[in-house]
Design a binder for these strands. Structure first.
Lengths: 134, 134
DNA sequence: GTGTATGCAAAGCCTTTGCAGCATG
DNA sequence: CATGCTGCAAAGGCTTTGCATACAC
């Protein structure tokens, strides 16, 4: 029987992860596709999506979705905060200067003019807890 | 000259806002369309989208986008926190019991099993600040 | 009347998926 | 050499848009 979590080490996956980690910015899938294409001219957008999905579900990559629904990816999976530009959608890292991110408003903002923040908790609702127990 | 923010009071807009505010849940545009259709059978999905966009840009409604890119709307535009189910995408309100939401982990979670949170700052990046000044 | 808003349908966009061939372990 | 992965292209799903008509002011 085969291991359902088995994954192969493909050149495509390696290059995608390498290029994403090298970038300080947080590209969209299409941005990354353009970048990776410089090294692997034949790689398809579909492959980029498939690998970003695998990597983000594996925790090696972070997927960031904005209010507009646009997805961006972050090769730094360590816990850190982001600031997003409301005008152009650009996303940057924020240096974590204390354990309480909400109090960081005067910390280094990477040149950003701060407007606010979005906070959302993640969990499992009562209904889905029941389904899982069955 | 006309006021760029001028808006007409249409029945459609009123009913969309009314129904959204009446709901405790946070429906998708399509969910809301189904609900509003009970009162206005001929209303189109496009009109629902157009009005939700107007209302959210006007601050009367909150637009919430999940990691998967799914958009949900909240008729309560007052500052409060949300918890989202990773299994089914359902979104509920969280009672705000202190000024520091990150410390609320033991507060009333509406029956949810808490897994974590997403925090993102919103601002204007240096590049866009320069564009605005010009 | 003037110009915004609507309904309808088509178009857009980003993302996912089916498939046959490829290449990894 | 079994089967996971790829490239390609088509399909999907949500959202936006163009257009003629309706209606708010």
């Amino acid at each position: 029987m085969s291991n359902p979590n088995f994954q192969r080490n493909t050149v495509q996956r390696q290059v995608i992860l390498e290029e994403l980690c090298r970038l300080k910015s947080h590209p969209t899938a299409s941005d990354l596709h353009e970048i990776v294409r410089k090294r692997l001219p034949k790689i398809s957008l579909g492959t980029v999506y498939r690998n970003l999905d695998l990597l983000s579900r594996g925790g090696q990559v972070l997927k960031l979705v904005s209010e507009s629904g646009e997805a961006r990816y972050d090769g730094n999976s360590e816990n850190h905060y982001h600031i997003r530009c409301v005008e152009c959608g650009r996303v940057d890292d924020l240096s974590e200067t204390s354990d309480d991110p909400l109090e960081n408003k005067c910390a280094d903002l990477n040149g950003y003019e701060l407007l606010g923040y979005r906070l959302e908790y993640i969990g499992i609702c009562p209904g889905c807890q029941n389904i899982k127990k069955k």
